[in-house]
Computed example of a mutant assay.
Amino acid sequence: MDLSRKLLAEGLGTALLLAVVIGSGIMGERLSGGNVAIALLANTLATVGGLYVLIEVMGPVSGAHFNPAVSAVMAFRGELPRAELLPYVAAQLVGAMLGAWLAHLMFELPVLQVSAKLRTGTGQWVAEAVATAGLLLVILRAPPGRVAAMVAAYIGAAYWFTASTSFANPAAVFGRLFSDSFAGISPQSAPGFVAAELVGAAVALAIHARLAPAAPRGLRA
Rank of each mutant, 00 (worst) to 15 (best):
V130D: 06
V94P: 05
E108M: 09
A158G: 04
L45K: 05
Y88V: 12
V130E: 09
V111H: 04
R82H: 10
A96L: 05
I139W: 06
G78P: 07
G134W: 07
Y154H: 13
Y88G: 10
M74Y: 12
I139G: 04
L177W: 00
N67L: 12
S62C: 08
F76H: 13
M150R: 13
V57C: 05
A133F: 02
W125A: 14
A64D: 11
F161P: 01
E84N: 12
H104P: 07
G175L: 06
A96D: 02
V61T: 14
V173F: 04
S62Q: 05
G121Q: 13
V173M: 02
M74L: 15
A72M: 12
I185H: 01
S181V: 02
F178L: 12
R82N: 07
V70W: 04
E128G: 06
T120D: 11
M150L: 15
E108R: 13
S164L: 11
G145Y: 06
E108C: 05
V70A: 11
F107E: 14
A46G: 10
A96P: 00
G50W: 02
G156V: 04
F107G: 09
A83V: 12
T165R: 13
G145M: 06
G63D: 11
A157M: 14
A83Q: 13
V126A: 11
V48W: 01
A171N: 06
G184P: 03
M58D: 00
L85A: 10
A90R: 06
V114P: 00
I55N: 06
Y154W: 12
L112M: 15
A90L: 15
R119D: 01
F66E: 09
G175Q: 03
E79K: 15
F178R: 02
Q92S: 10
A133M: 14
Y154K: 05
S62D: 10
L51S: 04
V111D: 10
T120W: 02
G99R: 03
I155Y: 03
P143C: 07
F76D: 02
G63T: 13
P143G: 11
L112W: 14
A172M: 11
T165C: 09
V114S: 06
G99T: 07
A153D: 02
E79M: 12
A100S: 15
L93T: 03
R119T: 04
V138N: 03
E79P: 00
V126T: 08
T122Y: 07
W160C: 04
V61A: 12
A183V: 04
M150I: 02
P144D: 04
A149T: 08
L98A: 14
V61F: 11
E79H: 11
P68M: 13
V89Y: 05
L137M: 08
G63K: 10
L140D: 01
A163I: 01
V53A: 15
A64F: 08
F161N: 04
S164T: 08
W160Q: 12
I55M: 08
G134E: 06
Y52E: 06
V173L: 08
F66A: 08
V147E: 09
A183Q: 10
L135T: 00
L102T: 14
V89S: 07
V147A: 15
A142E: 01
P143F: 06
L98R: 01
Y88D: 14
F66L: 14
V126D: 03
L98C: 12
Y159S: 00
E56S: 09
P60E: 10
M97G: 03
Q188N: 00
L98E: 03
P68F: 11
G50E: 02
V173Q: 06
S62V: 07
V126G: 05
M97H: 00
